[in-house]
């Protein structure tokens, strides 16, 4: 019985020879490098873009293969972080959140949709004060 099982396994391994092209399984870091402006804002799924000047926000993400530094201008508009620092993904190839680190403080924000490498937009969701209030920012590349 043991011999029989062993021979079947050996046989199936022989048949499944798949040739994988070079680099096909290499994961690429999502590229969000560039300067981004807020084009649309939702607060608890209500569009509040027109009731506040969100044009004041300018986010520049820098990358060198992986995320490195960022700069941020917010004016009086709300944003989780207000000074420049370092940033990173929770996963380089399939990130679900990004983390800003400035003045020894870390701020994590979630992607509201999976970001697409090299795309001209991405959106994040975060809470500022109460957890009940969820802000969603739609960024577009400047």
């Amino acid at each position: 019985m043991v011999l029989l099982v062993g021979s079947i396994t050996w046989y199936s391994c022989e048949e499944q020879q798949i040739e994988i092209p070079d680099g096909a399984l290499k994961e690429h870091t999502v590229d969000l490098a560039g300067t981004w402006k807020v084009k649309r804002v939702l607060l608890n799924n209500v569009d509040i873009t027109s009731v506040f000047n969100f044009d004041q926000i300018s986010l520049t993400l820098m990358m060198d293969q992986a995320p490195t530094d960022f700069t941020i201008e917010t004016g009086t508009a709300p944003f989780p972080v207000r000074t420049a620092g370092k940033w990173q993904y929770n996963d380089l190839a399939y990130p679900t959140s990004m983390q800003f680190e400035a003045q020894s403080e870390k701020y994590s924000v979630s992607f509201a949709a999976p970001p697409i490498s090299g795309d001209t937009s991405f959106k994040i969701s975060f809470s500022l004060g109460c957890r009940d209030n969820l802000y969603t920012y739609y960024f577009e590349k400047e």
């Binding site: 607060l43 608890n44 004060g129 109460c130 209030n133």
Partner: peptide
């Protein structure tokens, strides 16, 4: 204010 709960960091409309 439309929000049910809020604190100083929230944007109050």
């Amino acid at each position: 204010i439309g929000l049910e709960t809020y604190d100083f960091n929230d944007l109050l409309i």
